Computed example of a mutant assay.
Amino acid sequence: MKNCTNPVFTTTSTNNQGEGRTFGSYYVHNNMWNNDNGTYTLGACNYDNWYEVAKQPDGTAVRAYPNVHKDYDDVPLSRIQSARFAANTPRCAGCIYNVAFDIWINNNFDNELMIWTENWNQRPAGTQVGTTTIGGKEYQVWKSGGVNSPGGIFTYVSVTPQLSGTMPLQLFFRDLEARKWIPANSTTWQVDYGVEICDTNNTEQRFNFTDFAITES
C-alpha cells in the first residue's frame, strides 16, 4: 500500500483558511471550515496519496474535512459512475470522526449526499429513516432537512467499515431518485472523499489516504 513519506506539498494551519494543491483535475484540500483550537497538517504526494495529521481538542461538532475532490460545472449525475478509494485511520481512544464521500448536488451546492465508509463514534445529521443494501453493502440511511429543496443532507453509513474498494456512486444517486429526495435530472458540482474530524482527544493522529479516482461515462 502507498504511504506518502516525501510529500511535494505540505501545509499546516490553525485557522479556517486551510490551503490545498491541484493535481491534474483533482484538488487536495486542508479544509478547516469550522476549526476550534485544532492544528492540521496536510502532506500530499499526489491526489491519490496524501495524509492529514490532526490535533483537535474535545468536541462533537465537525471541525474540519480534509479531502480530495473534483469540481464539476453542473454536470448531470448520470455521468458520475463510481470512485476508487482507500484510507487508513488511527481508530484512537476518545477520537470522533468519519471517513466519507461528500457529493454536492444541484444548483450550486443545494443538497449534500454523504457516504460514510467508516464511522468512529460519530452521529450523522438528522434522523435515521431505515437501512438499505447498495452494491452488496448494508447502510443506515439518515436524512436531515429538505427533500427536493436546498439544505437537505442525505447520509448513508456503512454498517461494516469499508477501508478500500470501489464505491458505486451511480447506485446511490438512483436510490435518492427512487426516494424522490432529488429530481431525476439532478446535477453535481463537486465529488469529495476525506475525513470529517470532530475530536482527536487532543493528541496528534494521522489519517492516510492511499487511493482515489472517479470513473465517468
Score class of each variant (00 low, 15 high):
N31D: 13
Y47T: 00
S82E: 04
W33D: 05
Y27I: 01
K55I: 00
W33H: 08
V62M: 08
N108I: 02
Y72H: 08
R91H: 15
P124S: 13
M32D: 07
A64L: 01
N34A: 15
P76R: 12
S25P: 07
T39N: 09
A87T: 14
S82Y: 12
A86T: 11
D71M: 05
P66G: 10
T39Y: 01
N15L: 10
G24I: 02
G126T: 13
A100F: 13
T133K: 06
D74M: 06
G130E: 08
N106G: 10
P66F: 02
G24F: 05
S78A: 15
C92R: 12
Q81L: 11
W33R: 00
L77Y: 11
N35C: 11
G43S: 10
I105E: 13
E19W: 05
C92K: 10
T132D: 10
N88P: 01
V53Y: 04
D48M: 05
F85P: 07
Y27S: 03
N35H: 05
C95M: 04
I105Q: 08
N16S: 12
S25E: 14
G24S: 10
V62Y: 07
I103K: 01
L42F: 03
S82F: 02
I105F: 12
A64V: 06
Q122A: 15
T89F: 13
V53R: 08
D102E: 15
Q122R: 11
F23K: 00
N98K: 13
Y27N: 12
R63Y: 05
A64N: 12
G94T: 03
Y26T: 06
C92E: 06
N30D: 06
Y47A: 01
G24Y: 04
L42V: 14
T131Q: 14
Q122Y: 14
Y26A: 10
T41P: 09
R84K: 13
N31W: 10
G24V: 00
R79A: 11
Y72A: 07
A100G: 05
Y27W: 09
H29W: 14
Y72D: 08
I96K: 00
A83W: 09
A86E: 09
P124H: 09
N67R: 15
W50Y: 14
W120D: 10
T132F: 02
Y72W: 10
E118W: 08
T117L: 10
Q56G: 00
V99D: 13
F23P: 01
F101G: 01
Q122P: 04
G18D: 07
T22R: 15
V68G: 03
D74V: 05
P76V: 15
A64W: 10
E112G: 05
N67Y: 08
R79W: 07
T22I: 10
A61R: 04
Y51F: 14
N34M: 02
D110Q: 14
Y40N: 09
N34F: 00
D48H: 05
M114H: 07
N108P: 03
I103P: 00
D74F: 09
G130C: 06
N98E: 09
